[in-house]
Amino acid sequence: MTESSDEGLAIREVRLGATRAEGGTREVSYVIGGERALPFSGKRPERLLVALEICDDPRFWPPVVRDYVGDLSNDPGEWARAAERTYGADLVRLNFTSTKQRGFDAFDAIAATTEEVLAATTRPLIVEGSNEPELDSEVFRRCGEGGEGERLLLGTAEADRYRSVAAAALAYGHAVIAQSPIDVNLAKQLNILLCETGVPQDRIVIDPYTGALGYGFEYSYSVMERIRLAALAGDADLAMPMISAPTDTLSVREVREAVPADQDAMAVAWEFYTAYSAFVAGASIVCVRHPRTVERLKKALEV
């Protein structure tokens, strides 16, 4: 392929998911990254993915989504299936919110749910493991094990808790989400730490942390832009694709306090504006929670 010389250096390509030929069970695998220009300005279209987030314990999930998906929220497998087939998501991000409850010890369920959701879907899977540093090691091991060979995108590594997720990713052949708190330097530092632990650069996806629209989103937007610019200028430690998950978006006041009739519309608008802006800033994968946002985003990427 020929690229014009005025474009920047390339974003590293990261492969997600494994087809049977690649040693997994997915019907498709995705390659993200590879861009050489600012978003929506390059010679060829970006490889952009919209992920729908689901969880294994809906108590820790935004009410507006719970109300919308109804019973699905109690069945991660069905929820994941609907995400792909009904809502049109490119992939699913499974959040183990169950680990948020006090005294969590249902480690077996982690592996089981991972396998269940994999069985229900045909596309690559993002798994968001533990929310509690003390559970990290065991949770990531179970997630990793449950998805062995499927080249999951496993999250989340942070600067002071990256060793266990890195270990699970290395042991079971997954890619890693490296999350840092809205700072280009911290993002770079974490990538360096992961590489120094042995995680190859083409198995890292940067999550620069996305604040909700109206609640610090502009910081995330600019940090994503800066990461992308640094990468195009040749900073190999930042040349990974980015994932954006504006997870707080549906709990902002504007959505929580919207009149019931407008609540879905407000939730979708809020998520849509945040998520689409994240794409414009350079994200390769954007994760949203309201099913209707998925459809809106897929359309938005076509104009």
């Binding site: 629209l213 989103f217 504007e254 407008d262 407000m266 608008a269 809020w270 504006y273 802006s277």
Partner: peptide
């Protein structure tokens, strides 16, 4: 109203 508020906020 939702688009308006989101756009103005952005």
């Amino acid at each position: 109203p939702a688009s308006r508020e989101a756009a103005l906020t952005l």
